[in-house]
């Protein structure tokens, strides 16, 4: 059983903004869904999904990069060739 504060914690981990009004709804749905997921407790082992193929490599050869104009074409926030992002410090 998870509670609203758990959902708030998950939202913080996921960096998904969540409003107080949304909490009860998400909490109820998560409990219903996680109850359903409990069926997985009956699966034996935790073996990972096995891959038949391995060692898919490319050679160390240069391929063209994008022109800077194309790189910055999708942002409205470029400055001297850099992307602009919110402050982190």
């Amino acid at each position: 059983m998870i509670e609203e504060k758990d959902v708030e914690h998950i939202a913080m981990l996921a960096d998904i903004g969540i409003t107080k009004e949304e909490l009860p709804g998400f909490t109820g749905q998560f409990n219903e869904i996680l109850d359903y997921f409990d069926i997985l407790d009956q699966v034996e082992g935790t073996g990972s999904f096995e891959h038949e193929r391995a060692n898919v490599f490319r050679e160390d050869e240069i391929e063209p990069s994008l022109p800077q104009d194309d790189v910055l074409a999708n942002t409205r926030d470029a400055e001297d060739g850099f992307f602009r992002a919110p402050r982190v410090m």
Partner: peptide, 20 residues
């Protein structure tokens, strides 16, 4: 995250706030 494409992040606010 709105840095490289998509509607831009609000660069007046701190990173996590803007990202959320």
């Amino acid at each position: 995250d709105g840095v490289r494409y998509g509607p831009p992040a609000d660069t007046k606010r701190p990173w996590h706030e803007s990202f959320q």
